[in-house]
Design a protein around this nucleic acid. Structure first.
Lengths: 327, 327
DNA sequence: GAAGTGACCGCAAACGTTTGCGACAACATT
DNA sequence: AATGTTGTCGCAAACGTTTGCGGTCACTTC
């Protein structure tokens, strides 16, 4: 049997309330009694039942987190940061995966609701259209912070990496190196993130003073990126821009295969979380969109919500250019 | 206000117990009443309070998981698998990170205990000596499944990747290719996993019929692996064996730098979860130690525990050689 | 010597469920 | 007409906490 307050009370001959107060160092209880109870609790390995506490106090110090998959080198760092911050603030984290499936996602939302989470971090599945399930949480005062993959409507808290800024930074880095023929590879065209990066990148290039040739293409997987790279290489680009890690890995396989010298024969720049670019020699120059930063931002956003913040927040992390040797 | 059974009872004019039973399709309740209650519950967005349910039923359908960090390309796939299986079986997963710190780890164990988890998955921090905190869970009938980084004592449930088998497979693959000069790089010498792989690999090589030169070294980071590779390359190995992804990434940076042709000038083989080896051209031949498989094994082990399994389980996943073009 | 003052502690309600048991109809059986 | 039977439903206890309020005792105070 697990030890409960009742058992501690029976053994000590005190009442349940006294035991409870003693363990919480309540001033009403004498030092002698406190010492006795604390000692007893430790001997009997007493641990308060979180369910009972939360039922009573209506605050279970638990956050929910829903994400397509934790097995992803961007999300995992993000999640890691959120968990870390949560624990620092005495919150636990319940992590659910949607498997990129809106139905499972909705079920997960209900689970969070049933658990009366104090708040929810959510990264939408790519095919989620209807976010009513999330919106209902508002009615019961559960704040929702969307991160990375966020809904388009404006009445939601969102934190994102700086898509526009990061693509612009990358474009400017290319321009300043006086590159003339760019192959720019983007991800799935449906995604908001792709649209934003595409727009920012192409506009920046086009508005530059230089005469720059720009070839663009979209790939929705690393294999596709590989094929597209091969196909477009006969146009002799001097630079390849990769919108994401997925694209980058596809591109790099081709460059390795053809044994092209980076950056002498061809330059490479990417937008990335930061891990993949370090795997190559020379290390790839990239604009960092840090998962850790995003997680921390999401968490602080959550905290301002919980402490009564009233505005709907729409935040972005700052991006910075990390110089490798590939540009 | 959140909707509760009480509110449903008030609005419908029924008693709380009737409402409760109606929602669970209890035979005592008439179809008419059931329909009425279900309808009302949906209108008022009723969701049962998990805390109250669990307090009452003593079964909260929740697993705990403690791991040094979720941000790791082996653990994340493992965790992903465990979460997936859990949700399939109507369990939730509370994920805690120890940050590779035994103190935080212990705190996390207590948290799981307080939450009365149905079971705990644990991957120890590298410096954990004392596992009393975990053992105490047994006394309150909470099964603990250690995975990957497990304690040495025998009275615990453990699931691991097949260290000995995978290193043996790699060694045999090398032997069958008639390689003669092997540079074998291992991880942190303190770790059990390193010891096992080292022993299996070297013994297999030495017991072969062939005359094989074996150079071994230990690196506890990818940077160190990089340095060691450079240093040992003047001994002209024809093959490099990498014990882990971390080692592999260090090695590959050197090979890319020196523009050595794989496998013509030098062959490479690794033990890996499977992601990193696919990033290179040619893809690296590796012995797969799948995180997903490990997670699934851990989960099924948990289930047999919960259904009354009495033996202490000590399981390993099967390893298989995945041919790339690097050997 | 009655009243006031602290220090210390217990009673009981409440949080939202689940569930054994009993209540009360209506109706069929002797 | 007394007894069973069946179909519906409500009472109340229990799960393990927290906490407002009131109680008891010893001790001071005028």
């Amino acid at each position: 049997m697990t030890t409960t307050l009742k058992k501690l009370a029976e053994v000590s001959g005190l009442s349940i309330s006294t035991v409870s107060r003693a363990l919480k160092n309540h001033p009403d209880i004498s030092e002698k009694t406190k010492a006795l109870v604390v000692e007893l609790a430790s001997v009997l390995d007493y641990e308060p039942d979180a369910n009972a506490v939360h039922l009573r106090t209506k605050d279970n110090h638990l956050f929910g987190l829903i994400v397509p998959s934790v097995s992803n080198f961007f999300y995992d760092s993000c999640i890691s940061a959120i968990e870390k911050e949560s624990r620092k603030n005495n919150y636990s984290l319940m992590i659910l995966q949607s498997g990129d499936n809106p139905d499972i996602e909705l079920n997960n939302v209900r689970l969070c609701r049933q658990n009366r989470v104090s708040g929810l971090f959510a990264c939408l599945s790519s095919s989620t259209e209807n976010i009513d399930g999330f919106l209902k949480l508002k009615e019961v005062d559960i704040p929702v912070i969307f991160f990375d993959k966020v809904p388009e409507r404006t009445d939601c808290h969102k934190v994102c990496v700086a898509d526009t800024a990061s693509a612009t930074i990358a474009a400017n880095a290319i321009i300043s190196k006086r590159k003339k023929r760019i192959l720019a590879l983007f991800g799935n065209e449906q995604l908001l993130i792709t649209k934003k990066r595409y727009k920012a990148f192409t506009e920046t290039i086009q508005h530059s003073q230089e005469q720059i040739q720009l070839i663009t293409a979209s790939a929705s997987s690393d294999v596709e990126a590989e094929l597209l790279t091969k196909k477009n290489l006969d146009q002799h680009p001097d630079t390849i821009f990769c919108m994401s890690d997925e694209i980058l890995t596809g591109v790099m396989k081709v460059l390795q295969h053809l044994r092209l010298k980076v950056p002498e024969e061809i330059a490479v720049i990417a937008i990335s979380n930061g891990f993949i670019p370090t795997l190559y020699y020379p290390q790839i120059t990239y604009v960092e969109t840090s998962g850790v930063k995003l997680g921390q931002l999401a968490f602080s956003s959550m905290m301002t919500c919980l402490s009564g913040g009233t505005f709907t927040q729409d935040l972005t992390t700052e991006s910075v250019l990390i110089e490798g040797g590939s540009l």
